[in-house]
Write a protein that binds this DNA or RNA. Structure first.
Lengths: 227, 227
DNA sequence: GGATGTGTGTTGCAACTGCAACAGATATAA
DNA sequence: TTATATCTGTTGCAGTTGCAACACACATCC
């Protein structure tokens, strides 16, 4: 296995990675579609990296509502020490989306200053820093979406972010419409209804998972400031 | 000024901090109550640290709704590179809460590997890492709150988190009820109404900013898992 | 003192949203 | 093929929520 292309191991050679895997006692796990990678609460201070495939951090509240807290793709990091400490009796789970492979390591071990002062160790920390920073930005976007007051605003906010990432007025949803409802934390039928209204008003066009937004923001364009 | 007690400068002596301030060309700013510390979009890759006082990251959408995206206290870090990139034409602002003092530095300069390899530089990066991690956890909690489907659930979720932090069934709100509504992203009057209902049902007791929760979770108690 | 601004508390109303239920489409496995 | 599961699409209904408006308390400032 090569670790090329993984942001966590950027500027670190495969042989150095192998050395770290031994030194840090990292281990890998393979998961099938829908398999539970981790249930939060059980893992001590562990950090996971998605080597291959994708996954999602989901929460089930006492009423059984599923909420997708976070989507993890190849290269994403997750872990209780990084985010989403379960505190309120809800069930938190990392679920494999399709088949995936995950590398686990001890957070403390990674953060501890190594007596050998290996240069790749500090590179690892720097890379992890970048990943956590990205994570923070994704979470911020999530907060931006969830803090909208209506389903319509949530959808528009999410769609526009997707357009910016895609660099055009159209993009493909990374998950099903049902999962989208869970992601924006809304009732599915209510979302479908609102989506229908928006389609009628010509705000969006939805064809399967393909979404086209009417007044999509152009990338690079400075947002208008209203004070 | 002493930098004691600031998480960013932990394990770094004041004289080392002073050296870094010169080397990094950091600078300080003082702000009065309600003053705008930064408007997102204007600052390049800058990172700010609250040295004294408190602040809030707020957003005004096109309809004028205010949303408190994040509360910053002494020691908190903020910056466009860390979180909350404005992307959708809304107005994002860091507003001083009371009088405050902020230290700014260049993100790139901080992340760049220093040719002198000063030990305190790498300590700074480690400390920053911890702060960003904490930031991530706070954002996660925020997502947990906002992803609740009703005002009641949002309030209960937030209150319980506050109880866990306070270590008891009662705590004092860090801001006004009006600001709380902005924080949970709900209409103020609707929140007051729901709060009244919850009071009637004996779920909570609210006296000014003092909140007591009936079935507060106890710290250290393992959350119940329901699969 | 009055003016101003902010925070609290309340109400009516219209609109939105969650919920339950149903039907059809599609895909996968037995 | 038949089951089974998931996803899509729709509807009625009841409850929640946002919105606008108002009254009052409490500060600060002139």
């Amino acid at each position: 296995m090569t670790y090329d292309g993984l942001a966590l191991f950027r500027d670190i050679t495969d042989s150095e990675v192998e050395a770290m895997i031994r030194c840090f006692r990292m281990y890998r796990g393979q998961y099938g579609p829908g398999a539970s990678i981790r249930t939060y609460g059980e893992q001590g201070g562990e950090v996971g990296v998605i080597l291959r495939g994708a996954a999602a951090v989901v929460r089930f509240d006492h009423a059984g509502n599923r909420t997708i807290l976070e989507r993890l793709v190849t290269g994403s990091v997750f872990g209780e020490v990084l985010a989403f400490t379960p505190a309120l009796g809800d069930c938190l789970e990392v679920v494999s989306d399709g088949s995936s492979e995950v590398l686990f390591m001890s957070y403390d071990h990674m953060m501890k200053r190594c007596e050998k002062a290996c240069s790749y160790h500090s590179k690892l920390v720097q890379n992890m820093f970048r990943l956590v920073t990205e994570q923070t930005r994704r979470l911020s976007l999530r907060v931006e979406i969830l803090s909208r007051r209506s389903i319509r605003d949530k959808l528009l906010c999410y769609f526009r972010i997707c357009c910016l990432e895609a660099g055009g007025p159209a993009f493909t949803l990374p998950f099903s419409l049902s999962a989208l409802a869970d992601y924006i934390s809304a009732d599915r039928s209510a979302m479908m209804r609102e989506l229908g209204r928006m389609r009628q008003e010509g705000l969006v066009a939805v064809d399967g998972r393909r979404v086209t937004v009417a007044d999509a923001p152009l990338p690079g364009e400075d947002p208008v400031r209203r004070v």
